[in-house]
Computed example of a mutant assay.
Amino acid sequence: MNSELHKNERLHSKKLIKELFDKGSSFFLYPFKVMVLEINFDISETNQVLFSVSKKKLKKAVNRNLIKRRMREAYRLNKQILGEMAEGKKIIGLIYVSSEIVTFHVIEAKIKKILTTIKEKPLSDKNHP
């Protein structure tokens, strides 16, 4: 699998972002809130992911950008965990909710756990662990 993070793998459509927050299921794995929505219609050929860091939690833009870079890199290195799923693609929102700056190793470990959880659990109810 290609280990790059292309533009078509990043979620940037306002319509799909709104749909993710309206209809998606969510769970919490500190320091992330994870939103997931499975799409069955053919908008994207890949899973799409959104990275978000709250301005309220981390005031300085350099710190927010640092966390987003770490999140993107951790996702890029571990996206093969999701693999190729034939039954529809997923839209994933990774929202960083901590007010502390954590190391790359912590972020990578949590993102591995998140991707494993997304792959193994069916997305039936609104809030599942």
Rank of each mutant, 00 (worst) to 15 (best):
E120M: 09
V36P: 10
F21E: 07
E100V: 06
K60Q: 05
E84W: 07
K121E: 12
K56L: 05
V97Y: 05
I17W: 11
G93W: 12
E38N: 12
E45C: 07
R69I: 00
K112F: 03
E19D: 14
I101W: 08
E108I: 00
S25L: 00
L20V: 02
E73N: 12
K79D: 04
K23R: 14
E73S: 08
I107G: 06
E19M: 14
S44F: 13
F51V: 08
V53W: 01
E19I: 13
A74E: 01
I95L: 15
K113C: 07
N78D: 13
N65S: 07
L66W: 04
Y75H: 11
A109H: 10
D22A: 15
E84T: 13
K33E: 08
L29N: 10
I111D: 04
T103M: 06
D42M: 08
S52W: 01
L82S: 00
F32T: 02
S99Q: 09
A61K: 03
I118R: 08
M85W: 03
L20F: 03
D22H: 13
G24K: 00
L29G: 05
R70D: 03
V36Q: 04
I17G: 08
I43Q: 13
D22E: 15
F21G: 02
E100S: 12
I92Q: 08
E87A: 12
E19A: 14
I95R: 11
N63G: 02
K112W: 06
L66S: 07
E19R: 15
N65Q: 06
G24P: 09
L58S: 00
L50E: 04
T46M: 04
G93V: 07
F21Q: 02
F51Q: 07
S44V: 10
N65T: 09
K79Q: 12
L58K: 08
T116E: 14
A61E: 04
Y96W: 02
